[in-house]
Design a binder for these strands. Structure first.
Lengths: 204, 204
DNA sequence: ACAATTCTACCGACCGTCCGGTTAGTTAAT
DNA sequence: ATTAACTAACCGGACGGTCGGTAGAATTGT
């Protein structure tokens, strides 16, 4: 009766997901290199050998976390935002969805940026390729704005990186128990980012 | 006749400065934890033992680099920008000066953000305190804009972090041999950031 | 003037520790 | 009896750091 089937991303067991989640948190707090497998094992109440019953290697664990994070980005940011035809609405959706992933504590997504160097070249390239797709989705959105005469006179590549910088920095300073709620922070960031990009001559 | 006195930051020898510079570059490329002392030693044509003639410990080396970076931020960003009384000019100066430090390859400044966890708690707190001073300088500038009725309706803390995010992300994607020059990138970032913050109703 | 001494800038070899990962075996439930 | 889910003990290797020593330049004593 309790979770009879769990056809998640790759049919992982509950325990495996628990390990991924905890590992992502610890990687996020301490960094990949500074985290030992014993640290992770202890956090999920296992010995190191017990942990290796579930995973193949440290690098593989990181790769799995990053694949999960990319899958979240794609299904929780790109897909929902793609449904907006209006480029401004689409841009706002990207910021809000991505921001929400980060403020709601999806540490895996936060790791995506910081720990890429921990991957072997082949795995790294796979993740970078998927990130590139995301980046070009954002850039295309900006270019759609430009085509409609609604983008300020800014380079879309620099604009995309600027937006990413703002978003990627978010999990390093935002804490859920601060004076602003996650939704408030997202709204502020949306105001700032769109204000810097959108030509507001006709007020929409 | 050749450099008779060199009263630099702390009267360091040429060799020491060379070590700091090279170490900063390698830390920036590979990360602090992923860099071994032998790596650094080889990069400055020394053995590990020879390297330890100049430094006390790996952590101490990182601390020295970060102190140097903070000193650069203070003298090359805060001090020159403080001379502008007009808050908009001051904000633009902050972005331009900080951006220039990063595009001109001051790797030490780039490290400041990413490798804080490598420091011992006491040293880390010292650096964080100095960074806090910088952050409040930026926030005060935004509040001065607000007092003059020239800031959009945005939270100044979130705005400061957003700006920092954009700047701190810069050295991770900008390469000097790209299609845009450093100055062009800085100008674009300035447009985007100020556009998102400044209330342009009366055009200045 | 020159030998004796001291100092600067380094090196080869080594040490204890910790890490990622393995192996051989145990336990508990089917 | 078999299998899934572990554990205690261990391994090779890399790491940060140390130690004893030394070539050569600089300084000092006479």
């Amino acid at each position: 009766m309790k979770s009879p089937k769990k056809p998640s991303i790759a049919a992982e067991s509950d325990r495996t997901i628990d390990i991924y989640t905890k590992a992502a948190e610890i990687f996020h707090e301490q960094g990949f290199d500074a985290t030992s497998m014993s640290n992770i094992a202890a956090a999920v109440d296992l010995t190191k050998a017990g942990l290796y019953y579930y995973i193949e290697s440290k690098e593989d664990l990181l790769f799995a976390i990053m694949n999960y994070a990319m899958e979240r980005l794609e299904t929780m940011v790109i897909e929902p935002s793609r449904q907006f035809d209006d480029p401004r609405k689409r841009l706002e959706s990207i910021i809000a969805c991505h921001g929400r992933l980060l403020t709601e504590g999806n540490t895996a997504v936060a790791i995506l940026t910081d720990e890429i160097e921990g991957l072997k070249p082949k795995h790294r390239q796979q993740i970078l390729d998927r990130k590139r797709v995301y980046m070009e989705f954002v850039r295309d959105t900006l270019e759609a704005l430009r085509a409609a005469g609604r983008l300020r006179d800014v380079d879309s590549t620099v604009a995309t990186f600027s937006l990413f910088g703002t978003l990627l920095w978010l999990p390093r300073w935002y804490h859920a128990d601060g004076k602003l709620t996650g939704d408030q922070v997202i709204e502020e960031i949306t105001k700032i980012a769109t204000g810097g990009l959108i030509n507001d001559v006709d007020g929409n």
